[in-house]
Design a protein around this nucleic acid. Structure first.
Lengths: 333, 333
DNA sequence: CTGAAAGCGCTAACAA
DNA sequence: TTGTTAGCGCTTTCAG
């Protein structure tokens, strides 16, 4: 900037003003400065500008990871949500700082705000860290979490209406004639817990008591799912449908069943949750509960930005939609 | 920081030194400062620090988008690569700034470096922008791109050995008895072009001349693939196998064929490229050419950081591996 | 319309 | 061992 000033024969203040389009500066000078800047391939140092202005247009998006499994970022749904956040942020003129932090020391996430690197934080997945998140919110960190809305929640969350989603899927399976529906997913996770609650609700409404043996608390990991399905099969516990906690689990279940000689949907109906892009192209095409991904990104970003604008944190429940495909069509249909 | 200094009864320089663990400062003072900092919930302002130090530990990861389709970030393979870069960067202590830029004004990407926001740039996908990328490299922007290695390339690239991958898949299909293998993918894209070259090579080596009608230049979009497959079928052009430019295309092809009453692998063999996680769980499990995702992230990051360390840009060709699954098993096998 | 000067939060000589 | 001072690159009063 000093160089430009020298070359243009003006002061740095003038250059600064010219570059920021201030009306105070002579059009001719403005022109000259602009050209010089271009020819020198110059652009403003955002760091210095932020320092001076105490502003910042960066949002940190954090994906917690389990330090033991050191598991990689791979669930297509989470990945897709990141994509949609990236889009929403770009639209609003914000940058996205993507980072992974150890789930056990989630407070690290707050550092992105504390150190002035980001104006706020979007956290993907609340897992078991409800309390830590409340702490952060209490400390005044602008925060939005993708997950379930829990009672006693101080931070804002955005998520689909998991309980209704769970009901929709289960009610559909029951309507298709299923009577012994296995549930696959870890109900300790708030979102999955609500989906399970929906599962129970739907049963109750139908006047059916689900067999507790059909509740398989698997983690969202391939091996865990395969093991659970194989064991259920080996134990000879009869079941005529599966409601999986995510599409990935549903797909793994389907292929595991097939390897055991059990066909979907002829022998067992399978429904998932998420409606990832591939669900429609799976064989059989997967019935699932859609979580609106594009809206999710927008809602997360809106929620964060409105907090920054001084409004009170306002959680959002996104509508779910049951997408019926062949994986739950009884062959007679 | 000034507050801490006042409270601790020392100067800011001492605080600065204490916080940075300088050996010059008295252990007692250091202790006191550390406690104060913790209790005030203070942490260093990275922006100011960077400004002063002229350093920076963030890397910009850029995904170009086509402004017309304004297409969202959704290909699982790209998403997975982003995940793996995030991991690699986290391991090396770098932050990742994720952004999407209009593919037509790719130079914008250079701004992240120009404005001091990032030390270097990782670009996902070179598409048709070889020249622009060379320009950027020429201007001295530290840059790595995921894509093919082209002649006359100044920037560094990391990618799988697309031609060999194409050969592997095609040779496998030929070995399985296929004689009329359709190729689906836009050969204008450097990576796909090389895969196609591999396809041609394998044919030549087998002494077979592929029918030009079997070359379907589809974009990597669902609709495009469906349309192409339907048209091929409608025109009555016979084919006994498909080599798809990506797993997503292969899966779409499979489900489109199925809707036309053509079964995989009984009537037509299908092979893909990428080996995304779902490929193994697809039905039928998909034969594909694996691009090593974890290594990809590491290689991209290494390549960029070594440039920053002053070494010459060094492109990397990652090995591919043919993963044979049921989608290419002739039923008699 | 333009320039001089102060200062954003931090670090690094240089002195003491 | 610690404090003083200058300055990273920028913006913005306050005077001209």
């Amino acid at each position: 900037m000093a160089d430009i000033a020298r070359l243009a024969g003006v002061s740095v203040s003038t250059v600064s003003r010219a570059l920021s389009g201030s009306p105070l500066v002579n059009a001719a000078t403005k022109q000259r400065v602009a050209e010089l800047a271009r020819s020198l391939n110059y652009s403003i140092n955002v760091g210095a500008q932020n320092l001076r202005l105490k502003q910042n247009r960066t949002v940190a998006v954090i994906v917690p990871f389990d330090p033991e499994t050191r598991q990689h970022l791979s669930d297509p749904f989470f990945l897709a949500i990141i994509g949609s956040i990236a889009d929403a942020l770009t639209d609003r003129g914000y940058d996205m700082l993507l980072s992974r932090v150890d789930a056990n020391t989630l407070d690290q996430a707050a550092q992105f705000h504390g150190t002035g690197r980001a104006v706020g934080i979007i956290l993907i997945g609340q897992w078991h860290h409800h309390d830590q998140l409340n702490q952060m919110a209490l400390r005044g960190v602008p925060l939005v979490v993708w997950g379930a809305q829990l009672s006693g929640q101080i931070y804002a969350s955005v998520g689909s209406h998991n309980q209704i989603g769970g009901e929709q899927a289960t009610a559909h399976l029951l309507a298709q004639g299923a009577r012994r529906i296995a549930f696959l997913g870890d109900p300790e996770l708030p979102e999955v817990g609500l989906r399970y609650a929906g599962y129970l609700n739907a049963h109750e409404r139908a006047g059916i008591t689900p067999d507790p043996q059909l509740m398989l608390p698997v983690a969202f990991v391939r091996e865990s799912v395969q093991a659970a399905v194989r064991e259920l099969h080996a134990r000879g516990v009869p079941f005529d449908a599966v409601f999986a906690g995510s599409d990935l689990v549903a797909m793994t279940t389907t292929s595991t069943l097939r390897s055991l000689g059990v066909n979907v949907p002829e022998d067992v109906l399978v429904a998932g949750y998420d409606d990832i892009e591939l669900a429609a192209h799976f064989h059989p095409p997967l019935t699932t509960v859609r979580q609106p991904i594009v809206e999710a990104g927008e809602a997360l970003v809106n929620c964060l930005l409105s907090q920054l604008a001084g409004e009170r944190p306002q959680s959002v429940l996104l509508p779910t939609e049951l997408v019926v495909r062949e994986s739950t069509q009884t062959t007679t249909a």
